[in-house]
Design a protein around this nucleic acid. Structure first.
Lengths: 148, 148
DNA sequence: CTATCTGCAAACCCTTTGCAGACCA
DNA sequence: TGGTCTGCAAAGGGTTTGCAGATAG
């Protein structure tokens, strides 16, 4: 796949997202389009300030408040997920990736993703035993790279 | 066991803690003693404001800043654990309980504890596969009570 | 057209900090 | 007594909000 193709795919995804949102009655403003574009491109877990910075490269008028407000809207629409890792501003990622948990490198701040079905099941079982159902969970492994 | 006995045990625990801290060079002031007393009695997961309220019942001079400062000291000394649950001020608990994770009732804010050895092991395995070792982790199940 | 969205600046909330005085060891 | 600890008030940092003007549909 060429770069040109993947650019095209990202833009397609952004357009689809916009249409889906419009269909739900969410207005797509220049600022929101810029943020959606940025989120569609994001392969990491940027915080609001970083998203703001990136969005401004597309449309310099985007303000930080609008980034926050739009992120709230997108979160409600289940388009992005918000992660509040320890002692750091919240970080965001597109919600279209399959469910996963996070490993945070405590030395670099890098974030890796993983998924383990057995852990998911065990969580549900544990909650059920106590008379609860899991609505959402948070599993974060704060790790250090192994020497070797 | 009578109430009088358990009161006695709690006070003993508080005294032991104070002595251990003094041995490590930590000064035990009136305010710190009050907070240690409160923590020794706590069977829940209070936040700083609530700890402040309770400490003031023992010694009205305790300020919120001192509560925060002392909590930091106690956390460094591994005497309390700090938990930053989603969208809420940090909550604290004595560190003498065995390791456990938390279930948070999203309707009431209640916090339950659980421990599952299999999950612990799986976490370590997952991290190891990616070349990491787990320094600490955070597993929180945000739950709703089951109907029935 | 008009309800919704925006930028700006100010407010918010929890937490931390600088300072001058208090107090533990 | 000396170094630490305290209360107070003010600042910090991320996030939210009130407002008057701009704009999507």
């Amino acid at each position: 796949m060429t770069t040109r193709d993947s650019e095209g795919l990202i833009e397609d995804r952004a357009r689809e997202l916009e249409d889906a949102l419009r269909a739900k009655g969410v207005r797509i403003t220049r600022q929101r389009a810029a943020l959606i574009e940025v989120l569609s491109r994001a392969e990491d877990h940027p915080d609001a300030t970083e998203l703001h910075r990136r969005a401004q490269d597309i449309d310099a008028s985007v303000s930080l408040s609008t980034v926050y407000r739009t992120l709230s809207v997108l979160e409600q629409q289940n388009v992005v997920h918000r992660h509040a890792f320890e002692g750091a501003p919240a970080r965001f990622e597109p919600a279209d990736a399959p469910h996963h948990d996070h490993i945070i490198d405590i030395e670099t701040g890098d974030v890796l993703e993983f998924h383990n079905e057995r852990i998911e099941k065990l969580q549900a079982e544990i909650a059920a035993e106590l008379g609860y159902e899991v609505v959402r969970h948070r599993l974060e492994l704060y790790c250090r790279k192994r020497k070797g």
